[in-house]
Design a binder for these strands. Sequence first.
DNA 1: GGAAATCTACCTACTAGATGGTTGGCAATA
DNA 2: TATTGCCAACCATCTAGTAGGTAGATTTCC
Lengths: 189, 189
Amino acid sequence: MRDTRASLLSEAEILVRGRGYSGFSYADLAEAVGIRKASIHHHFRTKEELAGALIEAYEARYDAALDTIAGDTRDGVERIEAYGRLYLGGVEQGLGCLCAALAVELETLPEGLRRSIVRFFDKHIAWLAGVLEEGQIDGSVRRGLDPQAHARLIVAALEGALLLERFLAGPEGFARTLTALSEGLRPAA
Amino acid sequence: MRDTRASLLSEAEILVRGRGYSGFSYADLAEAVGIRKASIHHHFRTKEELAGALIEAYEARYDAALDTIAGDTRDGVERIEAYGRLYLGGVEQGLGCLCAALAVELETLPEGLRRSIVRFFDKHIAWLAGVLEEGQIDGSVRRGLDPQAHARLIVAALEGALLLERFLAGPEGFARTLTALSEGLRPAA
DNA sequence: GGAAATCTACCTACTAGATGGTTGGCAATA
DNA sequence: TATTGCCAACCATCTAGTAGGTAGATTTCC
């Protein structure tokens, strides 16, 4: 059934985001889903293949969210804030970013996964830079700032805030950081 | 000898920062230092004890650096930039932050280590908030901003930038992010 | 001063349990 | 009949940690 595969992806994502890639095992996952360890291999031949599918699904969800934001809002800073709120769910559930969890183990990560992670972040930076540039043209974003550099800053700040506020100040802490971040993007009053 | 213990701490830090806490083993560490696996237990009874010592040493180095910055510079934004440059070494060596590497595995982390990590970040946020407040008084930092919120933002942005630029754009990418970050703290011209 | 006791730093050899992964088979479905 | 989804049993390897010992330095006590 398609069902088991989806459960495996869902539960594996929770495990990786909660305890890291080499911090979770097939035994953990089998228990979470309620099948035997050997059966996981029927759906994902190796742990690496599972991780690849995890990133793919995660990325697809973000892609859809970026489209929604672009369709729903016009104002540049509002778009950035909406983007920032995508991370909020993680803080609320006490789960970090999937790609951040993998990135920590960069050195021992298979080449394929490494490339997927690079792609994930590069895409976000490019999207944000586009939002900022467009916002500068329509006047919803401060003119002086460098869109490329600020796009990097936004991803870094949100990734960092998710990492930290998960165990520091929770959703409120994250919200404060997001506010401080977006304030700096508004055109001078 | 004190020497072996120091080597163990140094090599273990490199391993954890490069591949995560559960991504490195006593076997890896033994090979890196050039002693047998069992001998590590003579210096650090358990892996958790080793991790604790790792954080302690890491924290002490940061404490010393914060004191140096406070002694060497007066200008608020300059202090923040100097603080940001503390992270640069990691990017150059391709090593993430020790506490970030541990934080990713939060869920399975022993309570004691968890507390140490909270203390590490809380201390940095408090120090940065103090720098910003002082800077607002002497006019070297923009008045409007909330010191607490921006202290959180600074730590988050730098932790995130270290995590990302390690494999994205390297030291140049990190420098761009740091510039974008500190620009927003300067008083309006 | 010198023997005895203790400590330090390391070793080989081992343990129990976990790790990702394999094999071969069984039942349901299409 | 062929495929799908799952399973028990197994495998080699790795995991942190233990047991017990050796050689050499340091301390203690007569």
